[in-house]
């Protein structure tokens, strides 16, 4: 493994004095590759497809014939994916610290906000694409499943409803990424994610059931509750308002704080 190469770095012609700044699109492509190119990253991505196929198969096997419609498939597939997507977003940020790749990433790209923005945009893209993939798998399941069962194929989820589900999952993915930005540690951020999705809703529910004064406030502070409206079909204007307020409190503000801290923090 030794050489006697005396030449210094192979110089590719003359050096331009000025270098063009790195465009966001290039950073996004690199971040996308980084999500796929490790074994763990690859299997996490693959698990979306795998989960969708397994959920579809389970629906065909276990769902009663009368309930075998597209909604059944969409619900079954949506459940595991809603957990996997945020974890992908989260790890894409925290691995820079946990795996210490940030040392290279942030010396090649000192503008850390730009790197995080690229990661967020890629996360949104992955969220949308994987939801379409999941819906396609569900559609195949619906056709195959109803054919096996010998019942009529029912398409009882509208495009509008599907887009709401996509939106909900993109929000989930951004929550994951935000927790990664804020906590910057894989284990800690995953714990944070379960606090967000399991502990906080339970807490609000208990509070809402026990305390009269909280009942009116509840929908304005419970993020999970507000997101629930997206899964229930046709959200009202008030539902959208709840979603906007809770998104600001639980997603946008912590994200801004996290981005500020990341710019100041020491990368070791």
């Amino acid at each position: 493994m030794t050489t006697l190469t005396q030449e210094a770095p192979v110089t590719s012609g003359t050096r331009p004095a000025k270098h063009a700044p790195i465009p966001l699109s290039r950073i996004m492509r690199v971040e996308l590759i980084k999500m796929f190119d490790t074994r763990s990253g690859f299997w996490l991505m693959a698990s979306i497809g795998i989960a969708a196929v397994l959920a579809t198969a389970a629906t065909i096997i276990f769902a009663p014939e009368s309930e075998l419609d597209y909604e059944a498939f969409a619900t079954a597939i949506g459940f595991p994916i809603a957990i996997i997507l945020p974890i992908i977003g989260l790890l894409s940020v925290t691995s820079e610290w946990s795996q210490r790749t940030g040392l290279t990433t942030f010396t090649l790209l000192p503008n850390r906000s730009l790197v995080i923005n690229a990661k967020l945009l890629v996360a949104v893209g992955i969220g949308v694409v994987s939801m379409f993939l999941a819906m396609a798998i569900g559609a195949v399941g619906n056709i195959v499943g109803t054919a096996i069962a010998g019942v009529d194929t029912t398409w009882n989820v509208s495009a509008y409803e599907l887009s709401l589900i996509v939106l909900a999952n993109v929000l989930g993915m951004l929550i994951g990424s935000m927790l990664g930005v804020l906590i910057r540690n894989s284990a800690g951020a995953i714990v944070g994610y379960f606090v967000y999705n399991a502990l906080l809703p339970t807490l609000f529910m208990t509070l809402g059931n026990l305390q009269e004064w909280f009942r009116d406030l509840w929908p304005w502070v419970d993020f999970a509750y507000a997101q629930g409206a997206l899964f229930n079909g046709d959200p009202s204007g008030e539902d959208w308002a709840h979603l906007a307020v809770t998104t600001t409190i639980w997603l946008i503000i912590p994200l801004v704080v996290g981005l500020f801290l990341i710019r100041k923090s020491e990368v070791k």
Partner: peptide, 27 residues
């Protein structure tokens, strides 16, 4: 060119992949 800690790399990437990330980032 910066080398601060040779061990600060994702252990799950190959050497070639790590170089390719740098090559792509720099264009």
């Amino acid at each position: 060119g910066v080398l601060l800690d040779a061990s600060a790399q994702h252990a799950g990437r190959t050497g070639r992949e790590i170089l390719a990330i740098a090559q792509r980032t720099m264009g």
